[in-house]
Structures are given as C-alpha cells and as structure tokens.
Amino acid sequence: MPTPMTQTQMTQVAATIEQSGSASQAPVTGLSATWRTARRSFRRHWQLYLLLLPGLLYFVVFKYVPMVNAVIAFKDYNVVAGIWGSPWVGFKHFELFFRNPVFWTLLGNTLTLSLYALLVGFPIPIMLAIALNEVSNGLFKRSVQMVTYAPYFISTVVMVSMIMLFLAPRLGIVNIALQSAGLPPTNLLGSPSAFSSIYVWSGVWQNTGYAAIVYLAALAGIDPTLYEAAKVDGASRIQKIINIDLPGIMPVAVIILILSVGSLLAVGFEKVYLLQNPLNLSASEIIPTYVYKIGLLNANFSFATAVGLFNSVINMVLLVLVNSWARRVSDVSLW
C-alpha cells in the first residue's frame, strides 16, 4: 500500500523529472542510427543491463502487473476462474459505485481531508522555514530544527495511539485541561465534526519540521548578493522576505503544490484507518479505507478494484491538469 508521497519525496521526484529531460542525449536521427547506438550501448554496458534486471523485474511484477490485474474492475472476478477466466461485465461495478449513496459521502470525506490538509499543510512548513532562516545559526535554531524533525520518525501506530491517549474522554490530557478550564469533557474522537481537524493538525505536528527542510535548502541557495543589495537599499526584514525569500522558494513551492494536488485523493490511508471508530465513521470513511473493507474484508474484489481504479484515475487526471496549469502561469512544471 503506497502511502501518499510526503512533500519532500515530491520535490525529489520533481527534481528528477526535470533532470531527466535536460540530461537526455543528443538527438539521433533515423531508426537505424538509434539501433546502432543501442547495440553499441548493449555491447559496452551489458553488465549494467544485467544489474538493472532484478530491479526492473520488481517494478514489472509489483507495479505493472497490478495495473493489468486492475481489469478485474470490468469483470466479475471469482477465484476459481481467475483474472482472465472471469466474465466481463463492462462498467457495472462503476455504475453500482456511483449510484450508491455512500459514493458522495466517500468523495466528500476524501476531499475534505485532503483539501484541509493541503490548505494547512502547505503554508506552515514555509512559515517555519522562513522563521528559522531569520534566526542566526545558533543553539536555539539547531534545537528547534532537531525537535521539529523528531515526530516525523514516529510510526503511524504510535502516532494514532498518542492521539487516542491525549483525546481520551476520561483521562486524556486534553480533557483534563478542558475540565480545569471549566469546560465539559468531550469524546473528541467520537465526534465526526472534529475528525478532520484531528487528522490534519496531528499531521501538521508530525510533518512540519521535516517538510520545512526543502524550503530551508532553497533559502540557503539564494544568492547572498541579493541580501547585500537589499541591505544597502535599507530594506527591512519583512521586505527581504517578501522580495527575496518568497520568490527564491517559489519554484520548489510550485512543484510541491502540483504534487500535492496530484495526490488529493490519496489521503494518508494508514492513519485514517487507525483513527476510525464506529462513532466517527460518517466523517472518517474515505475511498481507500472503503476499498480495503469491501475488497479484503468482504472479499468483493471486483467492486473494490473499480473503486480503487476510480481513485487512481482521478489522481492522475488532477496531476496532469494542475501541471499544465502551472506550466501556463509559471515556468515551473513537472514535464
């Protein structure tokens, strides 16, 4: 189960995609010339091709075969007949899904969580990076960095356990604080309206420090003469942030934004699944958790695959759309 990419992974992908475009070899004209280059390369680097084989086999078996297996979304899969022996049923499962009243709840919940996470999770690391960049390099700065990265290394299971302990109705520290402030204790995890905030803000707590690293690197890469010039012109700190820092990190920010939009429907499945309980399910059931339950717990393979395929396709379409939009309004894009 792939977890949605974190922002940092996204930048890495972005960097490579850009790179592979610019690093391509000189164009060769004609098929026979290409063939000749290929043959020469094979003869010269046969050992390297051999090294590539196990890895490529991995991607074929565990990434591309599943893409082909996804045809069971258009079939009535049964174990006896197998993937190719099961009868074709066209778009039956998709129609069933779209007509099902649960469809709108799932889509709504998925979009709410991901848009909320994007809206909050995108600007906060930028703010942290800029603030850290303003502070001179010292013990304080290093401590803040050290402490804010730490939660990134906590596992999902432990993270969710901490959330549950803190929000527990009786003994949770949050409820103890509420009570000492004279407020009634509440079961926050059992309230559907609180679910998205719990999910998003705990994510902010866990990932902000780590996500800020990319921006800190971009800030460190800004030409120092720009700051010298600004100093000479008497610019204030805020002016320097607006006119030097923000434009400096813009390319990185745009790429992270593109990739976040591209994975809008790929909400942090593993965390949502663990946070679910019967009381908050109306707000916490999202497409991937539904796929898991219908598919593996209820063994309704074809229907679950159709739902999952819908999710993957929407993600890819979103990515392509936002990328072409970014290419038009700015110079930065993935391809």
């Binding site: 189960m1 599943p66 082909v68 990515l319």
Partner: peptide, 15 residues
C-alpha cells in the same frame, strides 16, 4: 510512472 499511477490495493494483493 509507478509513483503517478497505482494499480490498486486488490490487484497488488492478488499478485
């Protein structure tokens, strides 16, 4: 491309 398009939970499980 495998980062952009995901075959799905069930199809992977079947593999």
């Amino acid at each position: 491309f495998t980062m952009i398009f995901y075959g799905g939970l069930i199809p992977t499980y079947l593999v």
